[in-house]
């Protein structure tokens, strides 16, 4: 399979040691939505599982095998036993593949796609299903559903095919709206991005209102985002849109930049909290595995 121009080389994404180090990590959501395949996650649906959970009054259509005859004998009323049903966790991975992710010498896309692969590997190892929907100005469904541990390599090849689109810009809000419109089974929606969306977080907030999935935002940052190494009179050109901003950078202007970036970071965190999601902030200049280990210190990342 030939990689398109701009794509990350396959070798950079696949490192056996890296994959092995992720094997003991897992993702957990508080409750898996009903209607999925049998898996290792607790489902909201009470069904044919092995673990007893509750009783409820019999209603027509219930499986007669679930009737607890002991209670009937003692109380004279018919109750059925309810069991926890083990189902899989649909994982919807939305990596940002806009041009900003591929811009710098050490592009954020490397960390972003490796993180995507890591999360996918974890999910697949827990018999969860995964979907890959990269986005930039528009979203594209590359993998609608994939499961099974053996699918890791296949999924990785999909990632290796991702490249920045020719159309400039990033539109996360549009991607989220499309996800909402797809009426997918409830699962965990993971957005891996720098979140430098010209439309701003307000548009993302509006788009998230239509999302029924649990949320995990993976923010890819680097130190120069908060502390730009710039001085003097510069014409800053956006790598995606080409928009230019002419700035004379003084200590005061730099302070104002820091304030703006800090505000953005806080707003992103508030946004995620508002939707009861999680935020994973990864420094692209640090080792990804170490950072994931820190976040998965208990072996589980609870979202």
């Amino acid at each position: 399979m030939t990689a398109p121009a701009g794509a990350i080389p396959f070798e950079k994404l696949f490192d056996p040691g890296f994959l092995a180090s992720l094997s003991h990590l897992s993702l957990e959501v508080q409750r898996v939505a009903a209607g999925g395949r049998f898996g290792e996650r607790l489902s909201r649906e009470l069904g044919s599982g092995l673990e007893f959970r509750d009783f409820r009054a019999y209603s027509p259509g219930d499986d007669p095998r679930a009737i607890d005859w002991n209670i009937y004998r003692r109380l004279g009323r018919v109750f059925v036993r309810l069991y926890e049903e083990q189902q899989d966790l649909p994982l919807y991975l939305l990596p940002d593949v806009s041009q900003s992710m591929f811009h710098e010498t050490d592009p954020r896309a490397i960390t972003g796609l490796r993180c995507t692969l890591a999360l996918a590997t974890i999910s697949l190892s827990h018999h969860d299903s995964i979907a890959l929907m990269p986005f930039a100005q528009q979203m594209e469904v590359r993998v609608k559903s994939m499961s099974g541990k053996a699918s890791v390599m296949h999924f990785a090849q999909h990632l290796a095919q991702l490249a920045p689109p020719s159309a400039p810009g990033t539109n996360l809000a549009a991607a989220l709206r499309r996800v909402a419109d797809m009426n997918l089974r409830r699962g965990l929606l993971v957005v891996i991005s720098d979140f430098f969306d010209p439309a701003g977080l307000a548009a993302v907030r509006d788009a998230l209102r239509g999302i029924r999935h649990r949320l995990l935002f993976v923010q890819l940052v680097r130190p120069s985002d908060a502390e730009p190494d710039l001085d003097g009179d510069v014409r800053l050109r956006d790598c995606e849109t080409g928009d230019a901003a002419e700035v004379t950078i003084t200590p005061h202007v730099r302070d104002r930049y820091r304030e703006a970036y800090a505000t953005f970071s806080q707003e992103l965190l508030d946004l995620v909290k508002y939707f009861h999601g999680g935020l994973l902030r990864l420094d692209v200049e640090k080792d990804l595995v170490e950072q994931l280990n820190a976040h998965f210190s208990s072996g589980h990342l609870l979202v």
Partner: peptide, 15 residues
């Protein structure tokens, strides 16, 4: 001016 290409200018435009 010195031309510098950055990943985003949204924060710079604010200041």
């Amino acid at each position: 001016y010195r031309d510098v290409t950055v990943v985003t200018t949204i924060f710079w435009k604010q200041v």
